[in-house]
Amino acid sequence: MQAAYIARRFGVFLLIVWLAATLNFFLPKISGQDPVRTKLLQQAALGGAVQSGMEEMVKEYNTRFGLDRPLLAQYGSYLYDTAHLDFNYSIANYPRTVRELIIEALPWTVGLLATTTLLSFTIGTLLGALLAWPRSPRWLRTLMPPLWALHAIPFFLFGLILIYLFAFQVQWLPMFGGYSPGAVQGFTWRFVSDVAMHSILPALSIILVSVGGWALAMRGMMVTTMGEDYVVFAEAEGLRATTVFLRYCVRNAILPQTTALALALGQILSGAVLVEVIFGFPGIGALLFQAIQENDQFLIQGIVFTVIVALGLATLVLDIVYPWLDPRISYRKLS
């Protein structure tokens, strides 16, 4: 039962990977432009000298992706390369490969997103649970309207406001980049704290905006759960209020909340991309922005593919953890 469930989830993950690759391959075909030639033309138009080694790349590109070959053959070799995580060279940063650039940027984004998502989900869920609980202190309720209002605003817009307040007006925190210019990278206390200082504002702009949403959703789930028969029976059993709250109400309300988390990951990432852009945080989002500015098709494709696969993986992990949270799930015929 369990194995079939995991196999099915893994199948969905593979399907997502395949879809991402296919999207990457066919979407650019719609416009019919050849990314490398477009880039060359642009550079020629700007009057600059063509980057050294660019001809080499064009030659290699044409033998591998030659537009003279049948579409299906091109698709086949594209899938083959993608499966080996080979996304070709970055057109704008030749001779660096797309893979190198992504590997450099990925830890920044993963670090930022993992921390902010976990924090905001945990804090928001807890807040929402407490809000629905009749015995929690009154002042909690006054906290919520501002958080709900924040929840309606995009991450990056709130980020702009934070930059203005904390980096421009009072200058407590750095406003740009992932670390101070000229800092020596490495696992030293100095560098780590430098990175932490640079991460505070981007992280806050994600956390403060998301918390209200999770709280709102959790409160709704709690209200539903608290009306369930098993909560009434738990009270009739004379269980302690904290037992009823944690093990009967929260424990059950968290199930739909977790499903919502899996579904929200894509949205959170989309928002984080823009946060990285305005903070110049050296993650995937800023790299993507740079790629768009430089019309670096291969880099854009590589990033889109990597992100979709990474999110697919995160969803897969959540899906596999889920039956452990909800013992009913592996018995249902739901996919």
Binding site: E228, F233, T243, R251
Partner: peptide
């Protein structure tokens, strides 16, 4: 409650916590 006066809930209801083993629910009580 339970020690002095105990309730047996309506049969039509899902009165048991769906995510907890029966033994654990007795242990909680």
């Amino acid at each position: 409650r339970l020690a002095g006066i105990a309730l047996v809930p309506q049969g039509s209801m899902n009165s048991l916590n769906p995510v907890m083993r029966i033994g654990q629910q007795i242990a909680d009580a």
